[in-house]
């Protein structure tokens, strides 16, 4: 017969995780209760006749049902939209280019293991100052959303694709910088330190050790941010930074519904192309 042993009992403690789960459940129940009983809101009032009428009007407008000559059957409009798409593409490519250059120039001193000298087996007093300086700049530039950057920059420069590109680049520079600095911090120091024992100088260690090791991962992040920039370019366009976004806003204000449809088609093609291309690059980099 199996002998009975005493199973040690698990110590129950009111942990942080348990507390947050309970709090989340309580908040959920409380807020829905408030909406239904205190505010007497009804979800179905959203679907009243008035709103249905508006929606019907908008969507039939998008498909150009009432119009004699919808924009998406018009050659002239297609050419115009094509130009705007090209502008948006230019803006995105410039943005990722600026962000990449700025991040690559600053990322090496911004890595903790370069600052404390564990990666290169050498210490310099000024490295911690550079580290702090670039990290603060990264935080600042990525803390401000691209839309806000765009508003500020369009205010200073005149509206166009250049301010849009600068705005997108500023926000993404901070993100890329942080991601790439973390890649350097995660690299295996052993092969790189071995270069030091075969007599390589710090500059040689940089080009023979650090850069070849981190580049493939950098490329993945750059391509990923490039995709995001392509999608966000329409948003910065709303505040006057040019391209498809700006035209989208204008068409919406003039109730030119079929133009909106056309712009959305172009935008979706652009995003698909961007995904496809960056996927191809990523595969090639492996």
């Amino acid at each position: 017969m199996m002998s009975k042993i005493k199973i040690p009992s698990k110590k129950r403690r009111f942990s942080f995780v348990a507390f947050s789960i309970l709090l989340a459940l309580a908040l959920l129940a409380g807020s829905w209760g408030h909406i239904f009983y205190a505010e007497r809101a009804n979800f179905f009032t959203l679907f009243n006749e008035q709103n249905a009428e508006y929606a019907k009007k908008f969507f039939s407008g998008l498909f150009g049902l009432q119009e004699e000559k919808p924009a998406f059957t018009d050659k002239e409009a297609w050419i115009n939209a094509g130009k705007l798409t090209y502008e948006t593409l230019q803006m995105s490519v410039m943005a990722i280019g600026f962000a990449t250059i700025a991040a690559l120039l600053t990322v090496i001193p911004a890595a903790r293991n370069i600052a404390d000298g564990t990666l290169t087996v050498s210490k310099r007093w000024y490295r911690w100052i550079l580290f702090g300086f670039f990290r603060v700049i990264y935080i600042f530039s990525r803390a401000i959303p691209e839309l806000v950057w765009a508003m500020v920059i369009v205010f200073i420069l005149k509206p166009g694709i250049l301010p849009g590109a600068v705005a997108l680049a500023l926000h993404n520079f901070g993100i890329l910088g942080k991601l790439c600095a973390e890649v350097i911090e995660d690299t295996d120091a052993r092969p790189i330190r071995n270069l030091a024992s075969s007599g390589a100088s710090n500059a040689q260690i940089l080009f023979y050790g650090i850069i070849p090791t981190v580049m493939p991962k950098f490329l993945t992040y750059i391509l990923y941010r490039g995709e995001v920039i392509m999608r966000t370019s329409i948003v910065v366009g709303f505040v006057g930074a040019g391209g498809l976004g700006q035209q989208f806003k204008l068409s919406l204000s003039y109730f030119h519904y079929t133009e909106i449809t056309l712009l959305l088609i172009c935008y979706i093609i652009l995003v698909f192309a961007a995904d496809f291309i960056s996927e191809g690059f990523r595969k090639a980099a492996k």
């Binding site: 052993r190 092969p191 790189i192 071995n194 024992s197 075969s198 390589a200 100088s201 050790g209 493939p216």
Partner: peptide, 29 residues
């Protein structure tokens, strides 16, 4: 580096470089 060379258990080489560059790293000094 002219007096002393080191070889370790593993992880000696830069994996993403071609073999020839890893061999020539011995000339960096």
């Amino acid at each position: 580096a002219k007096k002393i060379g080191v070889i370790r258990q593993q992880f000696d080489l830069i994996a993403s470089l071609p073999v020839i560059q890893n061999v020539l790293a011995g000339r960096l000094g």
